[in-house]
Design a protein around this nucleic acid. Sequence first.
DNA 1: CAACGTACCATAACAAGGTTATAGTACGTG
DNA 2: CACGTACTATAACCTTGTTATGGTACGTTG
Lengths: 222, 222
Amino acid sequence: MGTTGDVGADMRSQLVAATVSLLAGEGPGVIQARRLAREVGASTMAVYHYFGGMPQLLTDVREEGFRRLDARLSEVAITDDPVTDIGRLGLAYRQVAWENPHLYDLMFGLSTPGGYRPEAHAPPAESDRSSSQRAYTHLVDAAARAIRAGRVRDQDPGSVAAQFWSVLHGYVALELSGHLDQLDGLNQVLIPMGINHLVGLGDAPEDATNSLERINTANAES
Amino acid sequence: MGTTGDVGADMRSQLVAATVSLLAGEGPGVIQARRLAREVGASTMAVYHYFGGMPQLLTDVREEGFRRLDARLSEVAITDDPVTDIGRLGLAYRQVAWENPHLYDLMFGLSTPGGYRPEAHAPPAESDRSSSQRAYTHLVDAAARAIRAGRVRDQDPGSVAAQFWSVLHGYVALELSGHLDQLDGLNQVLIPMGINHLVGLGDAPEDATNSLERINTANAES
DNA sequence: CAACGTACCATAACAAGGTTATAGTACGTG
DNA sequence: CACGTACTATAACCTTGTTATGGTACGTTG
């Protein structure tokens, strides 16, 4: 019945995988210790033995979410047009969010499905930070390449990346929560916003437009 | 003992107010039917009589959140510099989010504190949409003024406003969830991002910079 | 080889919290 | 005064996180 997949995986990863899968399939409402245990063919105790409780399990699920985001962004090829690369990173980012909106929500929201949260709340845990950090790094690298190529004014790539991330996350979150329903999000918001931002960062308007028009073309390893 | 306030308010608004207050004070963990009832000096049944259940109550709380956001944005004066106005709207928006992060999370997240959600989930309810719409309108109006003043290229103000909203929400959400902790968010991310965006929209770099430098000055009715 | 400790897991009980059933009170209306 | 409606309180029910307890498998050690 479960969509857990691999039989070779240990119980720990099976539980995380089941949670991710249930989040995508039936939503946060069914993320319950009993349900997860049943899903992987174990008893409730598995949750406590391997994680300590639901909050800790969800912490791991969140981390897994960032791992998957990182993996997806890693697949975006590095080409000789860093601005196109940035556009493709954005598209991949949006795609990941749409494939499992509730997982995305768990990664960035302050609350969790069960109503409990993965620790205090303010600072993401060490490991959590590093996971999201790895995903963030893709943006930093792309920003650095854009600066090196003269497409973006010389400045701290971290700041530029944070700006891209804000734009991306804001757009994706509003889109997911339905607040952008009456617009053609991609063409009326995300793409023009990306172009505007790039132009503000120093790129020529035609160059930015041309680069972002290429984002849907093949994406093979350069 | 509650921080419910007004004794003249009916039970319905008292419950919503208590929820907002508890979200700010103790977090989503204490948003429980029994606790809310105790807070307003009633029995649990009040929640069911006035709302039907916790999900519907939270729907109302979400709406109240947008009402407050709208009220706050309404206080931002309309001056003869529409770009400064936009900056001030952004600052007010951020302030509202910081005053009650969990309420903000409830307004934009897909999940709710208790683990249940306010209906299906995809499209926000009618009333909900109109509440957020009212807040959104402030941005649309400001964008239209900026276009009329020649500070932004002529285009659909709704699209421009959605872009501003995305930028704002993305920044605020990342900031709240601690993902921007190692940066000086305001000065390294939000302000430069705003300037970049405005320049991309057509404003002159010096004008955008000057206008945004004015956002912290007095805010009296024009 | 036998005793033993540890890792792992199932069953069952406990506690908290959403929800429902039931019934009572107050009050306006005929 | 009879009656229906709005509102409220009490108590029970059910689901779900959690803990207690005990059992099995297996590697380690004497």
